[in-house]
Nucleic acid binder design. Structure first.
Length: 811
RNA sequence: GCGGACGUGGCGAAAUUGGUAGACGCGCCAGCCUUAGGAGCUGGUAGGGUAACCUGUCCCGGUUCGAGUCCGGGCGUUCGCACCA
């Protein structure tokens, strides 16, 4: 009789298919949205369904989020983990253009492919709550959100410059412009001025900034938002224009340097330029304005050479009374502050450079400690605003910079020349897109009634199927070519009117999707009040830090607006946010052009979803990402095989090994702590270490040694864990079995290895009772010849750290 | 320029937050088992040295009984933002 050798490996394909169909049949991944007692909303950033299919980066992100969600479920929560598709947007549209397809036909195919891949990956998703931002039953409510802002006076229309590619005849998002060139065809991008819709996010700057202090978010993300909001305290100063009745307002953070303001600069497009320009200078001023207008935004930002033109006007420095020239220059930006500055070349680098080029006077008004008014400035502006004191500054002579800031502002304010103000870098959010693949902005223009919002009862404003969705030379949306679509009766007066033909930014779709998920099955409301109260705000949000400012800031803004409108009772959408890292390969980002893109399908096919998931998590710290190496996955698969064979061979008679059980309880503690902290790589390492004890030398493990390990491994390798759980006699899902508790008593040790150092160098270790006294430890250490031989001179000092080390200092 | 993160074996990485540097895994070496193995198991694996030992966490300096960890300076990698007044 030949003995058949049982394989140690398991067959992931069969096991995973089996459990996925069982989960679907039993509704294991679904949660009762109306009856959960201990709800936990676990959110992952939804993907853009690209035609290339699921990227490993997506899977890395989703797996980390899924582990956290499954862990919380094992900890006793009812976990709601939905997922959907961010399917609208210029990215999908451009891809459709490139391959000659229509986004309305292409998107469902891409979504179906993503759906297949995501299901294969075995995520614990409640698919009943799936959303697709490009479907009318979703964007109906995106349009509703727009109307909420409109009604609050937070949506307005104004003319603004956009990036225009003359070859592709299309408007480009800033992200699609690289070094001033169109990312698709390489043509230089031009500026065009168009009427656009904006959201007044700047009105929320202070609240968006202030709340950051109390949010449990990755600090890098909070820091990025702070920088983006860019709060800066200063003053607006008023400069009268000599021989006229106009004046120029400037913003400065350095009011203390007013005595050194030797000229003013206006942005070229500043509205006062025409009024102040002298006849003699008019033609050169206009030529300069024309030149800077044509210059594209990116080229302007990358060039640092100072250019500008004198307007012929002079302003009066309110401190010195001197007439100072007024210039225009493109280093002053219309979008920031008042679009005008007082130039203090002695104490601002940019002003210094400009003054050098045009030979304008440079005056020192701040001196470093030990210096005085006569100390030459040398080759650079002195910009330190901490240690210096004022010189050449009249009554303020000698004051420290910080005192002078407030004193000068107060003094100027008394004379009507200043107001203390706070400025933000954050601009209002332009949401208009002169494109096709997005939700039409729900506005109608009527000759009689003006701008009329589409009544909620008439939503959605459906995006029509049009074959010619390609943008043209006109700079207006493709929808503007379809009169049968945009000609509608005015909702107010019934006269023929015209729809807004722009669509809204994709970021608006994603700025509220987390509100939609729990209510995705409701068609009569954007979000159900009871469910929203039960599930939101989101308990755990995990996503990429590339969205640190745009998506995460917009979501916070929209949530605040909806709260202010009385629709919800919280103003921060994400209680906890963690940014995951990025998966790179051979030190570089994965990209098609580099040919180093990993296709998850092939890996899941060869190794199984569990092994692939676990390998991605084992690569490195989740919050840092890691470098993908093909070979590494075998180690994880080996672990899973060992787990499987241990469970299969486990004995239930006799008693478990006490030493193994101690190790088990250490492992339970470690894996629990690490998983809670998203330290998945070390959690996995701890489980590997444990199985090395359990399975050492092919020993037959006891059931009690492996059963809790199955629960620990379940968030990481859910399919195999279910298989193991069933093999051990479990009748329902392992995810309803609870997280194992560790027995603290088992972790208490009687003896420890005490490290013995002599003069800080490790010379040995001694096994001692945990509570040994210093003197006894020293005696024991000196009894060890290997240690004693280094103690040849008198002992000067002994450092004793209980349970850890003994350092004998000799002299 | 501003802000952040980071720098540890051949490789991916650990290190209880100031206390045995290199856990865990890959790779490699040796052995066992096998007709065979891209299977399984055992042991080894920072560098130098026969050894006792010495050296070692990007570099230089400091604090400390003790530094990968803290401080100062430098170099390098990387990610945001970038003429923001």
């Amino acid at each position: 009789m030949s003995e058949s050798i049982e394989p140690k490996a398991y067959n992931p394909r069969a096991v995973e298919a089996h459990w996925q169909s069982l989960w679907a049949a039993r509704g294991t991944n679904n949660v009762d949205l109306d009856g959960a007692e201990n709800p936990f909303y676990a959110l992952m950033m939804f993907p853009y369904p690209s035609a290339e299919g699921l990227h490993v980066g997506n899977l890395f992100a989703f797996t980390g989020s899924d582990i956290s969600a499954r862990f919380h479920r094992l900890m006793g929560h009812q976990v709601f983990q939905p997922l959907g598709y961010d399917a609208f947007g210029i990215h999908s549209e451009n891809y459709a253009l490139k391959i000659g397809a229509h986004p309305m036909e292409l998107t469902p195919k891409n979504v179906a492919n993503f759906q297949r891949q995501l299901e294969r990956a075995g995520l614990m998703i409640d698919w009943r709550s799936k959303v697709d931002t490009s479907r009318p039953d979703y964007y109906k409510w995106t349009q509703w959100v727009f109307l909420q802002l409109y009604q609050q006076g937070l949506a307005y229309k104004k003319a603004a410059a956009v990036n225009w590619c003359p070859t592709d005849k299309t408007v480009l998002a800033n992200e699609q412009v690289e070094n001033g060139l169109c990312e698709r065809c390489g043509t230089a991008v031009e500026q065009r001025v168009l009427e656009q819709w904006f959201f007044r996010i700047s009105a929320y700057a202070e609240r968006l900034l202030g709340n950051l202090d109390v949010l449990d978010w990755s600090s890098i993300t909070k820091q990025a938002q702070r920088n983006w909001i860019g709060r800066s305290e200063g003053a607006e100063l008023v400069f009268r224009v000599a021989a006229s009745d106009t004046s120029v307002r400037v913003f400065t953070t350095r009011a203390d340097t007013i005595y050194g303001a030797t000229y003013l600069v206006l942005a070229p497009e500043h509205p006062l330029v025409a009024a102040v320009t002298s006849d003699a200078q008019r033609s050169s001023v206009q030529a300069y304005q024309e030149a800077t207008r044509k210059q594209d935004l990116i080229a302007r930002k990358s060039s640092r050479e100072k250019t500008g033109v004198f307007t012929g006007a002079f302003a009066v420095n309110p401190a010195t009374g001197a007439d100072i020239p007024v210039w225009i220059a493109d280093y002053v930006l219309m979008e920031y502050g008042t679009g005008a500055i007082m130039a203090v070349p002695g104490h601002d680098e940019r002003d210094f450079e400009f003054a050098r080029v045009f030979q304008l006077p440079i005056v020192r008004v701040v001196a470093a400690p030990g210096d005085d008014a006569s100390t030459p400035l040398g080759d650079a502006a002195y910009t330190d605003d901490i240690g210096g004191h004022l010189v050449n500054s009249g009554v303020f002579e000698g004051l420290s910079v910080s005192d002078a800031k407030s004193r000068v502002t107060a003094w100027l304010a008394e004379h009507g020349h200043a107001t203390a103000v706070v400025n933000y870098r954050l601009h209002d959010w332009c949401i208009s897109r002169q494109r096709y693949w997005g939700p039409p902005i729900p506005i109608i223009y009527c000759d009689h009634c003006g701008t009329v919002p589409v009544p909620v009862s008439q939503l959605p404003v459906e995006l029509p199927f049009i074959p010619d969705f390609k943008p043209d030379d006109s700079g207006i949306s493709p929808l503007a070519r379809h009169e049968e679509w945009y000609r509608v009766p005015c909702p107010t007066c019934g006269a023929m009117a015209r729809r807004e033909t722009d669509v809204s930014d994709t970021f608006l779709d994603s700025a509220w999707y987390f509100l939609r998920y729990p209510s995705a099955t409701r068609h009569d409301v954007p979000f159900d009040a009871t469910r929203t109260k039960a599930w939101l705000p989101v308990d755990s949000y995990i996503g990429g830090n590339e969205h640190a400012v745009l998506h995460l800031l917009y979501s916070r803004f929209i949530t605040m607006v909806l709260k202010d409108a009385g629709h919800i009772d919280f103003e921060e959408p994400f209680t906890r946010f963690r940014a995951h890292g990025m998966i790179i390969r051979e030190g570089a980002k994965m990209s098609k052009s580099k040919g180093n893109v990993i296709n998850p399908d092939a890996y899941m096919e060869e190794w199984g979803a569990d092994a692939f998931r676990m390998y991605l998590m084992f690569l490195g710290p989740y919050e840092e990402g890691g470098d993908f190496r093909d070979q590494g996955i075998s180690g994880v698969k080996r672990f899973l095989d060992r787990l499987w064979s241990s469970v299969r061979d486990a004995a239930s008679d006799g008693a478990p090994d006490p030493a193994v059980m101690r190790q088990l309880h250490r492992t339970i503690r470690k894996v629990g702590e690490d998983t809670a902290n998203l330290a998945y790589n070390t959690a996995i390492a701890a489980m590997m270490e444990y199985i090395n004890h359990v399975r050492r030398g092919d020993r037959v493990p006891h059931r009690a040694e492996v059963l809790p390990l199955v629960q620990l491994a379940a968030p990481f390798a859910p399919h195999l864990a279910e298989e193991c759980w069933a093999t051990l006699g479990g009748t329902s899902s392992v995810f309803d079995s609870g997280w194992p508790a560790f027995d603290a008593a088992l972790l208490v040790e009687d003896e420890v290895d005490l490290v013995v150092q002599v003069n800080g160098k490790v010379r040995g270790k001694v096994r001692v009772a945990v509570d040994i006294a210093q003197d006894d430890a020293l005696t024991k250490a000196l009894a060890d010849a290997a240690i004693a031989k280094f103690v040849t001179t008198p002992v000067k000092k002994v450092i004793f750290v209980p349970k850890r080390l003994l350092n004998i200092v000799v002299g």
